[in-house]
Amino acid sequence: MQRLKSLALLTLLATLSIAQNPMDFVSPDIKRVGMKLSCLCGGCRNSVGDCAMIACGYSLPARQKIKQLQTMGSSDASVIGRFVKEQGLKALSEPEATGFGLLGWVMPGFAIALGLIAIVVYVKRFRRPAVITESEVPAALVAEYEDTAARELDRMQS
């Protein structure tokens, strides 16, 4: 009975493995298009072109479909368009630079710009005004002196 159970399990394993065998060699053509498409298996955040999930239920059939469409002479854009038509914009691995998708690209840059403005405001507000001195000592010597003093204080404190 135990032997029979083990045999059944191994058969299941072999069946599962063979059933997961639609993997084809990912040619550069498939990869090029696949990199622009998102793997929608729900388990990873890869693109169809580089998804390496074992037995991935989305990227493997998607690659076959890309190959099929390419064999029929479809251009990259039309292959991608086909996926978008079927799955919606979530089929793309990154937002398009148009419409609402543009916001996706703009916001991180906007945040950096906002941060830079904040730094400028901070520096302007909290920067000590330069001390004006009337000295006969040459400016270069004063600068050297200040530099040494700053270094010494830095060494003492850090």
Binding site: S38, S47, L89, K90, P95, G101
Partner: peptide
């Protein structure tokens, strides 16, 4: 959060994956 935001505002989920 962009896919969730895009779905909530535009009604369609926009994919944001590793390349972005």
């Amino acid at each position: 959060l962009f896919p969730i935001i895009s779905e909530a505002i535009g009604g369609e989920k926009i994919g944001v994956d590793a390349p972005f």
